[in-house]
Design a protein around this nucleic acid. Structure first.
Length: 213
DNA sequence: ACAACGATACCCT
DNA sequence: GGGTATCGTTGTT
């Protein structure tokens, strides 16, 4: 395995836009109760802001549900939607209420285990190409809500020593019904595990431009 | 208890 | 690309 170094607190103590961008290419790792290690490379994220962001769960203030969003930066915030789960990391500082949603990873470790949990054959897009898919693949549920990514031995994020270069792409967020114009979605251009419209990738846009001629 | 919601995923065209 | 199944969670009686 590559040389990985777990992210420290100051990394998460930045504005969510910065954390969302810098998380791309980092390793998301999870060790379950059987000691089984799973994870992959983060390829798509979204920032949710503390102020002026009507799409953020923190928009109407703190509640028992979103408490982890207001916890120490680097705290895991897991919420449920459509009978599934999505995972975020709190950012900036405690009591602020900003976070980054991890929308997709490229599977790298424990692929057999993740495939089994997802009920898919192998390393295909449906394995971890969406926020609820990756949570199911990693067995991240409400049980992991509140975990501290700096100290937890069950879920954490790490930086690789020599990350490959990639092209960053930025678009509006997926699935939100308000604040739909802000470009707060970040992803690795061209990566097959990125969710949403394929046309958001510059290669596809380039190809389409030529087809239209 | 119960009803309504939803930062989804899947299946179908 | 669009319709909808699905159910954990939350807020309301």
């Amino acid at each position: 395995m590559q040389t990985l170094q777990r992210n420290d607190r100051p990394f998460y103590a930045q504005r969510p836009q910065t954390v969302a961008r810098q998380l791309l290419g980092m390793a998301l790792l999870r060790r379950d109760e059987h000691g089984q290690l799973c994870g992959g490379w983060i390829v798509e994220t979204e920032a949710y802001l503390a102020h002026g962001d009507s799409a953020s769960h923190s928009h109407r203030g703190q509640s028992p549900r979103n408490a982890s969003m207001f916890a120490t930066p680097g705290t895991l915030y897991v919420y449920s939607i459509h009978a599934k789960f999505c995972m975020n990391v709190s950012t900036e500082a405690a009591d602020i209420g900003s976070a980054v949603l991890i929308r997709a990873i490229e599977p790298a470790w424990g692929i057999e285990t993740m495939s089994h949990r997802r009920g898919v054959a192998g390393t295909e897009r449906r394995l971890t190409g969406g926020p609820a898919m990756l949570c199911q693949a990693l067995d991240v549920t409400k049980q992991q809500d509140g975990q501290d990514l700096i100290a937890s031995d069950t879920v954490w994020i790490a930086t690789v020593a020599n990350p490959p270069s990639f092209r960053l792409q930025r678009t509006p967020r997926i699935g939100v019904t308000s604040a739909t114009t802000a470009r707060l979605r970040y992803f690795i251009d061209g990566n097959p595990f990125v969710s949403g419209r394929r046309g958001d990738h510059s290669q596809t846009a380039f190809r389409r431009l030529h087809e239209d001629l």
